[in-house]
Design a protein around this nucleic acid. Structure first.
Lengths: 135, 135
DNA sequence: GTAATTGCAAAAGATTTGCCCCATT
DNA sequence: AATGGGGCAAATCTTTTGCAATTAC
């Protein structure tokens, strides 16, 4: 409710990055966003991409996703809650519906928890494209 | 089922690191493990800590935990499935029971998933020590 | 004795930051 | 004009790696 608390400007760079993030089902790394943005603003810098991603994250307009298998963060635009599937073979990340059963789980039973902001569910496995089993 | 597939030696370093990981409810970073290990083996090197953590992870004796909010990985010893609570204020990580409802969720409905290896559930919020709300 | 493992230090990869200039407001 | 934001490059942080020496087996 206090989004946009600090003065900000509508720069072309920020708009382009936000645009890229809005493409659904897409989970680009900062580097990928940089490459994509360069198609529109050829001399945009990687530092600007990172600064904007951080800014947008703080404003609640972007989300950072870290998987156990990937060394760099991935990002996605603001969107309704969902889980993420990670393919351990091709490293793809797919959106999954968020299981309703989690919506109501009473963490209240946990005396060490004061409040819950969000849930983060990652499903690790192999995607249908990479096929099953065999390490 | 093919754990311990390669020859390995029982070095003091490895034993100490494994010992540290065995302390339950503790989710140290590599650096923290390094500091802790130094109390026992003062000249152990950080590289060795990382090498052993990777080795133990491959053997299934350690697990790496990456949260969307923390820049460095945390580690824990082998233990039954559970979720993790992250306090956004003090950065603490606590173990939570794993919701049973997730055990049976049919991801089969998802045509893009071939097989599921594991689930990773992170609950983000404030711990009782840090108290509720107010950013 | 042999090869896995270590310590050390350099390297690599990802992200952040300082500085000065430019552009939005 | 004021100042937030950008470009560039250097700096920082985390993790990995090459190598010679060491040690478990």
């Amino acid at each position: 409710m206090e989004r946009q608390r600090k003065k900000s400007r509508n720069t072309k760079q920020r708009a382009v990055i936000l645009d890229i993030l809005k493409k659904g089902g897409y989970h680009p790394t900062a580097e990928a966003i940089y490459q994509e943005a360069r198609k529109v603003i050829p001399n945009i810098s990687l530092g600007t991409v990172y600064r904007n991603l951080n800014f947008l994250r703080e404003q609640g307009l972007a989300r950072e996703i870290r998987s156990d298998s990937d060394s760099s963060s991935r990002f996605e635009g603001k969107c309704p809650p969902h889980a993420h599937f990670h393919c351990t073979k091709c490293n793809a990340i797919l959106d999954l519906p968020f299981p309703q059963c989690l919506e109501e789980i009473p963490w209240k039973g946990e005396t060490h928890i004061s409040s819950v902001n969000s849930l983060d569910l990652h499903v690790i496995g192999a995607c249908s494209h990479c096929g099953p089993a065999a390490s």
